[in-house]
């Protein structure tokens, strides 16, 4: 009974959660400006439908662009650190230090450097917040490659490039995708951070902010739901890519 586990149980849980939320608001007789109930949300979605479509697209493309930059730069950094011990020793403390800075503090810094470049700033933040896990996982994947793997190919006279494309790269893919799942969530946070904080911003974050300014609480909660849905979509897109490119790493249940 696979459909029971895959569909019935999650859907029931979701329904119970929504009912619980509705009940919580109803029992406490909270007004909409304290907490919106699920039943308030459809109206908010319908009323602002065009805005939702427009803003979702803004948030989505900027998150994906930032994430794509992270994949490129993170993989490159990871390769440099994975293959060169000197680079690893030099860059690691810098990276850890940079990663430790709460990224909210960078929003005004970036905003001051690139005044008014809203798209650019948003993509940049999505990138800055998400490249770290990718760089670390790729570098660890490469530097922990068992020497025997290397010897098998090197003993045949294979070049470093062959070694990388035939062994190091595919072997690092599972770790890479593990990191990409984390990075995707982080990039999403980065995008929204800039959207919410920037005056005259765009995207779902800005829509959330406008709900707050106008006292439209059902709209704020509707944005939260939209963000959750988009986060789930991005996450599963990564899972899909992982299945395609690193499906071999999944242990078969019978094996």
């Amino acid at each position: 009974m696979n459909w029971k586990h895959k569909i019935l149980i999650p859907v029931t849980a979701l329904a119970l959660f929504t009912l619980g939320w509705e009940a919580l608001v109803w029992v406490n007789q909270w007004p909409a400006y304290k907490m919106a109930a699920p039943s308030d949300l459809p109206a908010a979605f319908v009323e602002h439908f065009d805005l939702f479509v427009q803003m979702s697209w803004q948030t989505l493309w900027r998150t994906v662009a930032g994430l794509a930059l992270s994949v490129l730069a993170g993989t490159l950094l990871g390769m440099i650190m994975g293959f060169s011990r000197i680079a690893r020793e030099a860059l690691y403390p810098l990276l850890v230090g940079f990663n430790a800075i709460p990224k909210a503090t960078l929003v005004p810094v970036i905003a001051l450097i690139f005044i008014g470049q809203h798209d650019f700033n948003t993509v940049l933040m999505a990138f800055l917040i998400s490249f770290f896990p990718i760089a670390v996982s790729v570098s660890i994947g490469l530097s922990t490659l068992e020497p025997e793997y290397r010897d098998i190919l090197r003993s045949l006279g294979a070049s470093r490039v062959t070694l990388f494309t035939k062994i190091a790269l595919p072997k690092t893919l599972p770790e890479f995708f593990g990191a990409l799942k984390v990075a995707a969530t982080l990039a999403f946070i980065g995008t929204n951070l800039v959207e919410i904080v920037s005056p005259h911003g765009r995207g779902l974050g800005a829509l959330f902010r406008s709900g707050e300014t106008n006292g439209d609480y059902p709209l704020m909660f509707a944005v939260l739901i939209a963000l959750a849905v988009m986060g789930i979509l991005i996450y599963y897109a990564v899972i899909l890519l992982e299945r395609i490119f690193a499906g071999w790493a999944e242990r078969s249940e019978t094996g």
Binding site: E146, E148, S155, K166
Partner: peptide, 13 residues
Amino acid sequence: VGMAFQNPVLLEW
């Protein structure tokens, strides 16, 4: 030259 080790180091993918 051909080599084989204690660890078969097959490529899992």
